[in-house]
Computed example of a mutant assay.
Amino acid sequence: MEITIRKGGADDVPAILAMLDSAVVWLNSQGITDQWGTEPWSTRAKAVSLVEKIVSEGTPWIAEIDGLPAGTVTLTPHPASYVAPADEPEVYVHILATDARFHGRGVGAALLAHAVDETRRQGLSLLRVDCFAGSEGRLVSYYESQGFTRTDPFTVGDWPGQVLERRV
Rank of each mutant, 00 (worst) to 15 (best):
residue 1 M to P: 06
residue 7 K to Y: 15
residue 9 G to V: 11
residue 10 A to L: 14
residue 12 D to M: 02
residue 15 A to G: 14
residue 18 A to E: 09
residue 18 A to T: 14
residue 19 M to N: 01
residue 21 D to I: 09
residue 22 S to M: 00
residue 22 S to N: 06
residue 23 A to V: 02
residue 23 A to D: 06
residue 23 A to W: 01
residue 23 A to Y: 01
residue 26 W to A: 07
residue 26 W to P: 00
residue 26 W to E: 00
residue 27 L to P: 08
residue 32 I to M: 10
residue 34 D to W: 03
residue 34 D to H: 10
residue 35 Q to D: 07
residue 36 W to Y: 13
residue 36 W to G: 08
residue 37 G to C: 02
residue 38 T to F: 02
residue 38 T to I: 15
residue 38 T to W: 01
residue 38 T to G: 07
residue 39 E to K: 08
residue 42 S to L: 03
residue 42 S to T: 04
residue 43 T to M: 08
residue 45 A to P: 07
residue 46 K to D: 15
residue 49 S to H: 13
residue 50 L to Y: 14
residue 51 V to M: 05
residue 53 K to E: 13
residue 54 I to W: 02
residue 54 I to A: 00
residue 55 V to D: 04
residue 56 S to V: 07
residue 57 E to G: 11
residue 58 G to D: 12
residue 58 G to R: 11
residue 62 I to N: 08
residue 63 A to T: 05
residue 64 E to V: 01
residue 64 E to Y: 10
residue 65 I to V: 15
residue 67 G to Q: 15
residue 72 T to E: 13
residue 73 V to A: 02
residue 76 T to L: 05
residue 76 T to C: 13
residue 77 P to V: 03
residue 78 H to E: 11
residue 79 P to E: 12
residue 80 A to Y: 09
residue 83 V to M: 08
residue 85 P to A: 14
residue 86 A to D: 12
residue 87 D to H: 15
residue 91 V to M: 06
residue 91 V to G: 03
residue 91 V to W: 11
residue 94 H to G: 04
residue 94 H to W: 13
residue 95 I to L: 15
residue 99 D to C: 03
residue 100 A to E: 04
residue 104 G to M: 09
residue 109 A to S: 13
residue 110 A to Y: 02
residue 110 A to P: 04
residue 110 A to S: 14
residue 113 A to F: 05
residue 113 A to P: 06
residue 121 R to F: 04
residue 124 L to M: 11
residue 129 V to K: 05
residue 130 D to W: 10
residue 131 C to F: 13
residue 132 F to E: 00
residue 138 R to F: 01
residue 142 Y to M: 01
residue 142 Y to F: 07
residue 143 Y to T: 03
residue 145 S to E: 08
residue 151 T to A: 07
residue 152 D to P: 00
residue 153 P to C: 12
residue 154 F to L: 15
residue 154 F to E: 08
residue 154 F to S: 07
residue 157 G to N: 14
residue 157 G to P: 03
residue 160 P to I: 09
residue 161 G to H: 02
residue 163 V to P: 02
residue 163 V to W: 10
residue 164 L to I: 01
residue 164 L to Y: 02
residue 166 R to P: 14
residue 167 R to I: 01
residue 167 R to V: 06
residue 168 V to L: 14
